[in-house]
Amino acid sequence: MQLRKTIDKILVNFLVIIMTVMVINVLWQVASRFILGSPSSFTDELARYLMIWIGILGAAYVSGRNMHVAIDVLPRRFKQPTQKRLMLVVRVLIILFCLVAMVIGGSRLVYITYVLGQNSPALQVPLALVYLVIPISGILIIFYKTSDILKKE
């Protein structure tokens, strides 16, 4: 699937950019604290938000690559056709969880924080932007799992 490869490439490049910004941010935090003697006020908060984005988007990427942690004791006890049916059930359950918890629940969280006008203390960015990664990641995981279901194995 060309679309899946394109999304993978965009996602991995975005994760690399976020990680690079986070490393530079933390280096500046250490330098400003120990070398300059005047700690920067925004670096701790920025590192925290970047870590949230890396963790949640990274989970979507790993899910798309089927490299996530899985307990395979039960599936290995069955024959191949039963294993395929079990994987289908697992993928459907993942899709349902991501739809309900991440897309719908995450979208409600983004909406509520946007309506309430909540901003981060140091950076003064809307917290809705920080939380926006939850429904985005949910949509990505749903896309990956749906394409896994539709893929001819």
Results as ranks from 00 to 15, higher is better:
M22K: 00
D148E: 14
P39I: 02
I71H: 08
S107N: 11
G58D: 03
V16D: 00
D44R: 11
L27P: 06
I52E: 04
G64F: 00
D72H: 00
M51P: 04
Y111C: 09
T20I: 04
L27S: 14
Q2K: 11
L57V: 03
P135V: 07
Q2Y: 05
T20S: 04
L46D: 04
A128V: 07
A47P: 00
F42A: 09
P75E: 01
Q83W: 08
L140G: 03
I54L: 08
G64W: 01
M67P: 03
Y144E: 03
F34M: 03
L116W: 14
R77S: 14
I18R: 00
E45S: 07
L132E: 10
M51A: 08
K151R: 11
N119L: 15
A59M: 06
K151I: 07
L27V: 09
L109R: 10
V130D: 07
I10C: 07
D72A: 06
M51G: 08
P39T: 00
M22I: 02
P126R: 14
G37S: 01
V92G: 07
R85W: 14
Q80T: 11
Y131V: 06
L116T: 08
D8R: 09
W28A: 05
V73D: 02
V62I: 05
T113E: 14
V21T: 02
K151Q: 10
Y111T: 10
R33P: 04
L11D: 01
G117W: 15
P75D: 07
L116C: 09
G58F: 02
A70E: 13
R85P: 07
G64T: 00
A101N: 11
L129M: 15
W53M: 02
K5V: 03
L123E: 11
I71S: 07
V130C: 05
V115L: 15
G55H: 04
V26Q: 08
I35P: 01
R108A: 14
V110P: 07
F97L: 13
G117K: 11
L123I: 09
Q83Y: 07
G58E: 03
V110Y: 10
I54R: 02
V90T: 12
R65D: 02
L15S: 01
K84L: 12
D72M: 09
M102E: 12
A122K: 13
V16A: 10
L46Y: 04
L36W: 04
F78D: 06
L88Q: 15
K145E: 13
R85Q: 13
N13T: 08
F78C: 09
S120D: 11
S137G: 14
A128H: 08
G105P: 12
Q29M: 15
L132C: 12
L57Q: 05
A31I: 11
R33E: 09
I104H: 10
K5P: 01
M102S: 14
